[in-house]
Structures are given as C-alpha cells and as structure tokens.
C-alpha cells in the first residue's frame, strides 16, 4: 500500500502499471507456497469444520447433518474444560520456565567459563530425542531410577511425580523442560553473540555495572529472540501430545490429559470424529485469538525497545 500512496500524482498512471506488473510477479512467487499451505492445512481445516456439523464416526460410510448439536455438547463436557485448563497451565509454566532458564543458561554460557562447547552440547542433546523417547526415559527415571537414590542414601523423597494428580504437571514440566531448554538456549546464545561488543564497552566507560548492562543492553537487544522463543514455546506447549502419551497416558485418572490428547482420543478411541472436529474448531478459535494478542503485544514491545 505504501508504494501507491507515496507516488507523485504526475507519474501515478505509469507507476501503477509498473507496480501491477511487479505485483503479478510477486504473486507468482507467492503461489507455490500458498498451494502447499492450502492443500495441507486449509482444505483439511474446512473439511473438519464441515464434519463438525455432522454425526460422522470416522469409520462408518454414513454421515448426517446435525447442525450445532456437537457445539452445544462441548460446553457441557467437563473433560474438555479440564483438559483445556491443564493445557493452559502447561503452556504458561513452560513459557515462563523455558524462557527464563534458556535465557540464563545462555548468559552463563556466554561468559568466560571453560569447556563451553561441552556444556552446550550436553544441554542441547535432549532436543535430539523424540518426545516419545523423552516420555519413556522420564517414566523410567521417576518410576525406578530416582527412587533407588532413596535406597542408596536411606531417604524418603517422593520422586514418582507421575503417580499423583498433584505432581503430574510438575513431572511433565521437568521432562519437557529437560528436553527443550537447550534448544531455546541456543537461540538466545545466538542473539547474545550478535550484540555488538562496543555497546558494552561504551556502557563500561559511562560507569555502568554488569546489572545495568544486563537491563539496558542485553535484554533490549534480545527483543527479537524473546519474541521467537515465546511464540515457539507457547505454540509447542499447546500442541503437546506425544510426550504425554508416552509417559502418563493422560493419567492418573484424567489429570494430565491435554486438549489435543482429548480431541485425538475422542476421534480415534471413542469414535466420535465429528464431535472431535467440533472441539478442534473451538480450540482453534481460542488459539487464534490468543496468537493474535501475543503477536500484537510482543511486536509492539519490540518496537518500543
């Protein structure tokens, strides 16, 4: 829009033509990605929305239009609300813990300590495992390995975090953060290394201490990294499925069932495909609103800094 508005009235006809010709070329470049995106996501999404108004079970050859019945059901579905709460908490804690921990790990690894590469590699290593394996490993850790520390030192710490509804969230957060902090740490580390060193020096000359440097230089300069990490962690957490399936299976009871897991189970186990579609639509609407706010806030903050 800026191009046409800023053009001088005298050359407007000529410029417009050129702009249009250019726009066609830009559009041609845009076309292939658009095709991929539409086929892989948008058409299935529309099909899903259509399904949500039917009574299709996902297997049967029959499919009848039933209007908003499925949507009305959702608001009476305690499990959906519970799973939503769980997912929300999981996301909030993850976003805070992972951001803060990754940030500080990065700062510490950006200092002049020895064997940095070794540390970095170790902390990054869990990222290379699939969440399914992480789930299996931590199930084993909480179930057998850590309790055996109790035996060794005659302690009685409750390590089995997956066995009670009160601790299962903590247990999953530990496993999830163990896996992902290293990943975001790397992004922060990259951001830190991109901060021009002379800014720090200038600050030192002005008599600033490390804390002032940290607040006034490091954090603002990492603005874009914070945006990427926050969005990445939040969306990743909202989609959590494999880790939970492989570790707690949603239990004990229903206490660690994530929304995706509830939707997946409803579609594939309970064979209520259309109802699951309706839940997906509601979940997506919430996610989109949330994403919109997040993007606005983060981008705005970035500009201000």
């Amino acid at each position: 829009m800026s191009i046409t508005i800023s053009s001088k009235p005298t050359s407007i006809v000529h410029k417009k033509k050129r702009v249009n010709a250019r726009n066609i070329q830009y559009f041609l470049l845009l076309l292939p990605p658009l095709v991929f995106f539409i086929v892989a996501m948008i058409i299935p999404l529309i099909m899903g929305i259509y399904n949500s108004f039917t009574d299709w079970d996902g297997i049967s050859l029959e499919k009848n239009w039933i209007g908003f019945t499925n949507y009305i059901e959702i608001f009476k579905d305690e499990m959906f609300i519970e799973s939503f709460k769980f997912t929300g908490l999981f996301m909030i804690f993850n976003t805070i813990i992972q951001n803060v921990a990754a940030f500080f790990f990065a700062v510490m690894l950006d200092s002049s300590i020895k064997a940095k590469n070794f540390y970095r590699t170790i902390i990054f290593a869990p990222v290379l495992l699939s969440p399914i394996l992480v789930g299996q490993i931590w199930t084993k850790m909480y179930g057998t390995i850590l309790p055996s520390i109790n035996d060794l030192f005659a302690l009685s710490i409750n390590f089995n975090l997956f066995s009670s509804p009160n601790t299962v969230l903590t247990g999953l957060l530990v496993a999830n953060n163990w896996q992902w902090i290293g990943y975001w740490m790397l992004i922060y580390l990259a951001g830190l290394q991109a901060v021009p060193k002379d800014i720090y020096e200038a600050c030192t000359v002005d008599g600033g201490n490390w804390w002032q440097k940290f607040i006034h230089i490091t954090i603002p300069m990492l603005g874009p990294s914070i945006t990427i990490c926050t969005i990445g962690i939040a969306t990743g957490s909202l989609k959590v499925y494999e880790l939970i399936v492989a570790s707690t299976g949603g239990g004990p009871g229903d206490s660690s069932k994530s929304t995706i897991m509830h939707i997946y189970d409803t579609a594939f186990m309970s064979q209520q495909s259309s109802y699951a579609s309706a839940m997906s639509v509601v979940f997506l609407l919430v996610l989109l609103i949330f994403a919109f706010i997040q993007l606005k806030v983060l981008r705005k903050r970035e500009v201000e800094l």
């Binding site: 009670s164 509804p165 239990g251 009871g253 206490s255 309970s270 064979q271």
Partner: peptide, 19 residues
C-alpha cells in the same frame, strides 16, 4: 466399547485419588 471401560477406569482412579 473398550474406551468406555477405560474412561470408567479413569473415573475410578479419580475417586481412589480423592478427586
């Protein structure tokens, strides 16, 4: 169906755990 039995099992778990 098995998912129904499993879900009832989950409710039993919630009861045993005091929820």
């Amino acid at each position: 169906p098995w998912p129904y039995q499993e879900q009832s099992g989950n409710y039993i778990a919630e009861w045993l755990l005091g929820n």
